[in-house]
Structures are given as structure tokens and as C-alpha cells.
């Protein structure tokens, strides 16, 4: 048996929100607009807290450098 990654799948919406940490500048814009406190951000580490994210998209619209995207395939859980 190989380790199959666990995916975070959409509950209602078809598009999932995905942060690309390699491109991120860790500026905190997305955290400031997130109504659910669903983004964890450290000095150089960022991820979505799966159980809180409602896929509301506000972080996607607010990211200045297009690091947060919609992902149709489902997002690997952190």
C-alpha cells in the first residue's frame, strides 16, 4: 500500500481554494480578509485550515500577487 494523499474536496462549490506556498510573499492580505480565520501564516509558512475554509473566495480576490487560486481537482490536505 502506498500513501494516498488525502484531498480536501468541495462540499457545495465545485472550485477549491489552493495557496501556492512557493510563490507566496507571506504578506497577510488574505488573512486580513478571511471571515473564518481559516489561514495559518507564520514567517515563511502558509496553509489553509481545512475544517474552517468555506471556499468564499475573498482571499483569492485580495491576493496581490496571484498566489491563491481556484483548483478544480481538489486540494491536498495539510
Amino acid at each position: 500500500m502506498t500513501n494516498t494523499p488525502e484531498y480536501r474536496m468541495a462540499k457545495t462549490a465545485k472550485l477549491m481554494i489552493d495557496i501556492l506556498p512557493d510563490k507566496c510573499d507571506f504578506c497577510g492580505c488574505c488573512v486580513g480578509v478571511c471571515p473564518e480565520d481559516a489561514i495559518e501564516l507564520k514567517e515563511a509558512e502558509i496553509f489553509i485550515i481545512d475544517e474552517r475554509c468555506t471556499n468564499c473566495s475573498k482571499c483569492v480576490w485580495s491576493c496581490p500577487i496571484e498566489v491563491i487560486k481556484f483548483n478544480k481537482e481538489g486540494v491536498v490536505k495539510r
Binding site: C29, V33, C34, P35, K58, S62, C63, P64
Partner: peptide
């Protein structure tokens, strides 16, 4: 949290 319309995304 700030309404996303009031957040100025800057670069």
C-alpha cells in the same frame, strides 16, 4: 476581518 472591498492589495 476587513471587507475585501476595503482591503487594498498592494505590491
Amino acid at each position: 476581518h476587513v471587507d475585501f472591498r476595503d482591503m487594498e492589495s498592494c505590491v
